[in-house]
């Protein structure tokens, strides 16, 4: 799972177990010009993510079962690294620092479009410099 192909519209995987958040964030990203693949759980993501070429993940931190951070660690163990925008409805300053120190992004819900797109660009840019989506 390495970014081999430069695509005009980056593909973003959204993973959240709250259906309303999953649907609306996917919608927002699509309207911003991204391609979006939604996943309702971390387990579901692990099973099927290889069918897509994903450039970035928007990943909820808290799940029943495997959480967002567990998923990142698991992927790292298998040698897979995604740029990730972590999203969470909990306030946790320490966690934010830890995550941002690794170069990933941390967004507290609710967030607006600008914040989300900025975060995506921030995590995407180092690996995917041409990936500015053509949103108006």
């Amino acid at each position: 799972m390495v970014l081999t192909k430069q695509s005009a519209t980056p593909v973003i995987g959204v993973i959240d177990d709250d259906p309303s958040v999953l649907k609306s964030v996917s919608r927002l990203l699509r309207s911003a010009g991204f391609s979006v693949v939604p996943f309702a759980s971390t387990e579901g993501f692990l099973e099927t993510h290889q069918s897509w070429t994903l450039h970035c993940l928007v990943l909820d931190i808290h799940f029943e079962g495997m959480g967002g951070l567990d998923l990142e660690a698991y992927l790292a163990d298998t040698g897979v690294h995604f740029p990730i925008v972590f999203i969470t409805a909990h306030d946790d300053a320490a966690l934010r620092e830890r995550i941002e120190a690794t170069g990933q992004a941390y967004l507290r819900k609710p967030f607006d479009e600008t914040a989300l797109l900025d975060a995506i660009h921030r995590v995407l840019l180092p690996t995917h410099p041409g990936a500015r989506p053509d949103h108006n």
């Binding site: 309303s20 958040v21 919608r27 927002l28 309207s31 999203i87 409805a89 819900k109 967030f111 479009e113």
Partner: peptide
């Protein structure tokens, strides 16, 4: 936390509609 979920969805939806 419980309120932030629907607020996130509402905001994302509204902004998507604006676009």
């Amino acid at each position: 936390h419980e309120l932030r979920q629907p607020l996130t969805a509402i905001l994302a939806n509204a902004e998507a509609a604006q676009v």
